[in-house]
Write a protein that binds this DNA or RNA. Sequence first.
RNA 1: CGGGGUAUAGCUCAGUUUGGUAGAGCGCUUGCUUGGGGUGCAAGAGGCCAGCGGUUCAAAUCCGCUUACUCCGACCA
Length: 576
Amino acid sequence: MRMSKLFAPTLREVPAEAEVASHQYLLRAGYIRKTAAGMYSYLPLAWRVLRKIENIVREEMDQAGGQEVLLPALQPAELWRESGRWDVYGKELFRLQDRHERDFCLGPTHEEIITALVRKEINSWRDLPLLLYQIQTKFRDEIRPRSGLIRCREFIMKDLYSFDRDEKGQSVSYKAMYKAYSKIFTRCGLKFKAVEADSGAIGGTGSHEFMVLAETGESVIVYCPSCDYAANLERAVSTPATADPSSKVEQPLQKVHTPSKYSIEEVTGFLNVPASKLVKTLLYRIIYRDREELAVVAVRGDRDVNEIKLKNALQALEVELADPITVERVTGAPVGFAGPVDLQGMPILADPEVTLINNAVVGANQHDYHLINVSYGRDWTATKIVDLKNVIEGDPCPRCNASLKTTRGIEVGHIFNLGTKYSVALKAMYLDENGASKPIIMGCYGIGIPRTMAAAVEQHHDRDGIIWPVSIAPYQVSIVPVNYNDKKQRLLAEELYFMLSKANVEVVIDDRDERAGVKFNDADLMGFPLRITIGPRSLKDKKIEIRRRLDGMVWLVDKEAVIDKIQTELAELTQQ
RNA sequence: CGGGGUAUAGCUCAGUUUGGUAGAGCGCUUGCUUGGGGUGCAAGAGGCCAGCGGUUCAAAUCCGCUUACUCCGACCA
């Protein structure tokens, strides 16, 4: 490719809209342009990167037994009504109507379509397992698109769906995908972690998210430094405490005046007790498909409720904190003075930790009063005791009790056992060896392609721009003649361009009438792994100068050795 | 959904407080110059000041509404 022809308009300044590194550099280096919030146009360089990622994905999917298909992006509402998701999916689903006012949606995912396809064609256990995948554009009306390519409303995704006879077969498919995903992200040059993820109300053998480690990631990951335990925050647990280490002597319940002490900090400061002695009592609105109710949630004062855990514990559609008026109506006190003692008429969910506190402090359900020396069992009991808290750094690992750590990540892949949720709803059945009709066991396995590209930039950049892993670089080498108008430089540059192209090295030549500095900066910004510089310096010694983007390492080699050296270095970089 | 911010040239931004008919840097065009990390000089082109409606002799500027973009929060008692 000739830089004089390449459609990659670079920007000298950081566009005001870009916050994170991947967004800034992809814009500045001329890879992407925004069309609207959460919608991007991919320019030639980005498209090359995306296709490379796609091809790695494709190879590994094929390797794992997948077959590629292409499915409609525009989907009829009937199928979504059949699966029940037309009503459940909510605002995130892009809905539209055709000229006859029939309902459609733009597919955010393809379970319905593929299950409907498979149910018609698969009848026998002999047809299973079946692994089908597609790489195509999906649509989600995200609450808040953000961080450039990381959270978009329109994005390319690979989804593979597995169809198996039974749990055992499903587990084989799942493991094959787990392995394929590990290979894919390794090949893309990414540092990642597979973490246990929340599998929601569906249950099943589980779910893993593949997280590219990056400070700008949206998800918090909990992991153990000494064993292989890793989970996202919604899923992470720690070894439950068995007892309150403090004094066990049970004191009589007592009401104390705590004027205007609303927050945990105010109460702990006023009563001079640690936050771990408090029971944080929260009133939640629990929304089910057909009804709504209130529930009391209790965690230790130094803990936070994880609403996903709460939602799962109650099998609810949605949970949200009750508004202050409701709190006052139900507890009889303003927000800040709620407590589980004598709070009736609704379920009380308690995290196991709160039941262990000796002589706890709780709100008295009365303005400006708290209760002290509260004892679980004696003074109150929970309807349900269940893990509801966010794990924090330092909690003991549930497997080996080492101190857990947290970090952030970008979720680039998610694998999921669907069980029979869709096959039952959409009647995708098969006949087993005994002639019995059974629902197919399904799994789905997604990878966000543009997000993977963005994650790679988050992980591989410096002040000057992107530093692509070789496997996904749009071009591997750029040739920069310091002065293209100089005949000697031009001829040599063109010769090398020809030689490398012929040797199947993906190469760009900067044939623009620009200053050396401009070309160097553009090459650095765009992130090509290697650069060949041609100028009077190296020409004088009849050597070719090869520079590594990663660290600025420079080699001077003979012309005859260039291809060899380039290939060696590319291989070397790929290894790392 | 709630809250904040922003909207002026292709990009980054001044100008708005105190109304008087539009600016800088970069980019772009042309010519010369220079040629190893965004060269220097000169001459140009380029704006319905997001949109709509008010106030006024006069609005980028004041007031109201709308739209778009962006950040924060998704309420932790």
